[in-house]
Amino acid sequence: MNMTSLINNYPEISIQTEDFDHGVEVNLLEKHNVEDGAVVTFSGRVRNNNLGLKVRGLFLEHYPDMTEKLLAEIIETAKQRWNIGRVKVIHRIGQLAIGEQIVFVGVTSKHRQDAFAANEFIMDFLKVKAPFWKKELTELGESWLEAKTSDKEKAQAWSK
């Protein structure tokens, strides 16, 4: 496979119920990509505690037709702002157990500064713009999570 066809066939966004392999995703970001020296990845997992309560699991809902559009806009904005190469965003939906992966953001660039910044930017805007909702199952029962002011402020800080 030559590089052009690899890039053309490389989907930047995946919304999926099934798990993903972190190592495979890093390999795909690096494969036939010798222009970029930096690879920055973030992955988010289901933790066993929130606001002092024991968490037993999460349920992830989304707005199917809108999610990919929003994520594509965020990635496009990052590409305009920084000199980056490949981008991959994976977000899982459905029922997730403790320790399972929820989200993956991978960015490559020639030098590390652009990859670090773009990765954080994509993650910050995914948090406040992409139409996903988490329902938490704790020792007290089920409840929808509330959006955090700190996440909103973090995203707003990029426009300062």
Binding site: Y63, M66, V128, K129, F132, W133, W144, A147
Partner: peptide, 24 residues
């Protein structure tokens, strides 16, 4: 597309209402 309460709607549109998002 995210809009505010004054945004115009017409027949055939899809209007979605939802709480603040909490993904990631």
């Amino acid at each position: 597309q995210m809009v505010n309460r004054d945004f115009s709607v017409k027949a055939g549109d899809e209007v979605a209402f939802f709480p603040p998002v909490t993904g990631g």
